[in-house]
């Protein structure tokens, strides 16, 4: 069964929560505590709320979330590792009337795919990018990512990331916000209900700048990877709050509707 089905309310009871219509009814392959599931749901909710389902083409990337297309009930194409923004450029140019989004991890977007994301953003491609930053290469077993924090241990920096040899974690939202074609750029987090709600608002804006034809929309989501961080799901959320957010400040970095300039000050330290 791949079509989403709405649960019928039982007589006398009010249905207050259900699976979004654009979400496929199937068991998840994601690990317990992984935030990809939350981010997927937010994408599906927005597709429903904005009435985009029948005209959406999703571009899934290489990483744990390659299987995005198994969960979201829209037409989709699979891009090679890092190339989703180029594939999405081809899709959007071929079918300018469609709603096109990519969904990419930090290894995919901020390492191997750095050229593609920068240029798609700079050209102002009318697309939306959901960037899930979990500070590791999840799918391949938790290796160091370009966003791995200083001192963070991974399978390829077992002594902890060292600034002198591995460089500093890359802050993508701050970089993307500088580029001319970007209409909306923000960083949210999935560590708490409050932050999830805020992140969804950002995602809506990143979707709407596309539907309004204003430019490139980008949202970074700070996410947990308890499996590869070797911590519990609760400890992963706490780690986002305590360690990631100080280095990756939340907020809007560019919103052409608001002021046309780059927003938040970059704080946090190395």
């Amino acid at each position: 069964m791949t079509k989403a089905q709405q649960a019928a309310p039982v007589a006398g009871e009010e249905l207050v929560f259900s699976r979004p219509a654009s979400m496929v009814d199937r068991a998840t392959h994601y690990c317990p505590g992984c935030h990809h599931g939350i981010a997927h749901r937010m994408v599906a909710e927005l597709i429903d709320e904005l009435g985009l389902k029948e005209r959406t083409i999703a571009v899934s990337s290489i990483g744990c979330s390659v299987f995005l297309y198994n969960y979201i009930d829209v037409d989709a194409v699979e891009a090679p590792h890092g190339r989703a923004p180029a594939v999405a450029t081809g899709v959007k140019r071929a079918r300018p009337d469609k709603f096109v989004f990519t969904y990419q991890g930090d290894g995919d977007l901020a390492s191997i795919g750095m050229a593609e994301i920068m240029h798609a953003a700079n050209r102002g491609e009318r697309m939306s990018v959901i960037f899930v930053n979990n500070t590791v290469y999840g799918m391949t077993g938790g290796q160091m990512a370009p966003t791995t924090l200083i001192g963070q241990k991974t399978t390829t920096c077992p002594g902890g990331r060292c600034k002198d040899t591995e460089g500093s974690p890359i802050r993508m939202s701050e970089i993307i916000a500088q580029l001319g074609g970007v209409a909306f750029c923000a960083r949210g987090s999935l560590d708490s209900v409050k932050n999830i709600r805020q992140a969804k608002k950002y995602m809506r804006q990143a979707f709407e700048v596309q539907t309004k034809g204003q430019g490139f929309g980008f949202v970074e989501l700070l996410a947990g990877c308890p499996t590869n961080w070797r911590v519990s799901a609760i400890a992963a959320n706490k780690r986002i709050t305590d360690e990631m957010i100080p280095y990756f400040p939340l907020g809007v970095y560019k919103d052409i509707e608001a002021d046309g300039t780059c927003g938040s000050l970059i704080q946090g330290g190395e």
């Binding site: 571009v59 891009a79 190339r83 180029a86 594939v87 081809g90 899709v91 140019r93 071929a94 593609e116």
Partner: peptide, 8 residues
């Protein structure tokens, strides 16, 4: 990769 997207 743009070709891939348009072809799809």
């Amino acid at each position: 990769n743009m070709l891939l997207g348009a072809g799809a």
